[in-house]
Design a protein around this nucleic acid. Structure first.
Lengths: 111, 111
DNA sequence: TTGACACATGCCGATATGGGTATATATTGA
DNA sequence: TCAATATATACCCATATCGGCATGTGTCAA
């Protein structure tokens, strides 16, 4: 059998560091491909391809403006990730970190 | 140049659906490899390999008990993901969803 | 219409991936 | 010591991935 498709969902799209950088760059403002290229120092096809993946997963929206194409992050598509990860959140919260701290201090005072 | 290493961080480890399932299975209780195999219906080597990836990224802790090996989810390693995703959280919150709703209704009433 | 720009795609090479089968390694019990 | 059990590894296959180069496609301006 073969490898599982990996560019199919938000989890995979976001697994690539460059794509996270791109999302960060498009989070606050609409930008053209060229701007992304300059901003992150990528090759133009490289940028286009990553943007394609992000688009297919719904992580970015596109808008045509003349011969430029303006991309913008669509955070909604990150929700599934947030929801999945949040289920584990209580395991590292302040409450629990506080316990950790106490344990650390105990360990300290023992030595 | 080559493909980027993908089993190197939590983002990538978690990109594989089966590994999320494994983490979910190990979140509430320590389990042996065999139990994971039975629980998720995996091949034994398959399970061992995914557990290896999770271990290398720190997403699971291991403990030897006789000839069995007990794994358990370590949610702390999910923190980087949570932190990154959370920066986008406000963009899908109720407040904003409310705005979306209004816009939707406007669009509706136009047609 | 033609040329310049902005972007998307096709193709290739090197490599990493996930699954399967077979085998090594370690621990327990007889 | 030897068989059985529990995991981990090695190896192979089919395929997906990322990056780079070359080229297609669409848009503007003269």
């Amino acid at each position: 059998m073969a490898r599982a498709a990996t560019t199919a969902d938000a989890f995979n799209a976001v697994a690539e560091p460059l794509r996270r950088d791109i999302l960060d760059a498009l989070a606050d403002a609409e930008r053209s491909v060229g701007e992304v290229v300059d901003l992150l120092g990528l090759g133009q096809p490289q940028a286009s391809k990553h943007l394609r993946v992000l688009r297919e997963v719904g992580l970015v929206d596109v808008r045509d403006e003349g011969r430029r194409r303006l991309y913008r992050t669509n955070a909604h598509a990150l929700r599934p990730i947030h929801e999945w990860v949040s289920r584990y959140e209580e395991q590292w919260n302040e409450r629990f970190d506080a316990v950790d701290t106490v344990l650390e201090e105990l360990k300290e005072s023992e030595s």
